[in-house]
Design a protein around this nucleic acid. Structure first.
Length: 216
DNA sequence: GACCAGGCACATC
DNA sequence: GATGTGCATGGT
């Protein structure tokens, strides 16, 4: 897939001038961002906000506290974010990783080499490519581009890349062409989410539909 | 009531 | 490697 630096910057400029700076990720600390990254998996952000508010009002939004409380308690607190049993296990897995390797400190975790840390995060049960990269970029300010379903929809509908291309192919599009700039990656991904929410609904468009070009 | 939301692991072919 | 499925709440 060939797409030039100018094209990617042009897309960025159009989105940025339309929406303005997004200042992502919403969250008061790197740890909160990491928790949010897990909770928002296939879930509306407003639901995640409710779950995080529950954790905050219970004074439990810390690695130590969330690690120590029973899973049933954690599940009841994050219930509004959906998939609460699955996400409880995923949070517990991340917390065990964070507590075990870095004493619960995101700052200490951040000192790891980015590539190595990404590999380690992907080994945590429940953390896949997007969640790992969201943590790296938005919690730790690492130079990693985050790919999500909106990125796929927007780019594929503008015929820049096939919707079903792999996560790595999408990511390489940006890593190979753009300067490694965490600030740029931060805003760019957030802008994809914005324009995706507003203009790239899942329907009407099916990959195999003979009329799919009609909607492009 | 249907559809959607800032994925992931797992089973099966 | 590609495809299908379960997981669950809350807003539109």
């Amino acid at each position: 897939m060939k797409v030039g630096k100018q094209a990617l910057l042009e897309i960025y400029d159009k989105l940025y001038s339309f929406y303005g700076p997004q200042h992502w990720w919403p969250g008061d600390s790197p740890f909160e961002v990491a928790v949010g990254a897990i909770l928002t998996q296939n879930t509306n952000w407003t639901n995640v906000e409710k779950a995080i508010a529950n954790l905050k009002s219970a004074h439990l939004l810390s690695a130590r506290a969330m690690h120590d409380i029973p899973a049933t308690r954690l599940a009841s607190l994050i219930r509004p974010s959906g998939y609460f049993n699955i996400k409880t296990a995923r949070l517990k897995a991340f917390l065990a990783f964070l507590m075990g390797k870095y004493g619960g400190s995101m700052k200490r975790m951040s000192k790891r080499d980015t590539g190595m840390l990404r590999v380690l995060l992907l080994e945590v049960h429940g953390i896949g490519s997007e969640t790992a990269d969201s943590i790296l970029l938005y919690a730790l300010n690492k130079q990693v581009f985050v790919v999500d379903v909106y990125t796929r929809r927007v780019l594929s509908r503008h015929r820049i890349i096939d919707f079903r291309a792999s996560y790595e192919e999408y990511q390489q599009l940006f890593h190979n062409v753009l300067d490694k700039d965490a600030g740029l990656f931060n805003e760019y991904h957030a802008l994809f989410v914005m324009v995706g929410k507003d203009y790239c609904k899942p329907k009407p468009l099916c990959a195999d539909c003979p009329l799919k070009d009609f909607f492009l």
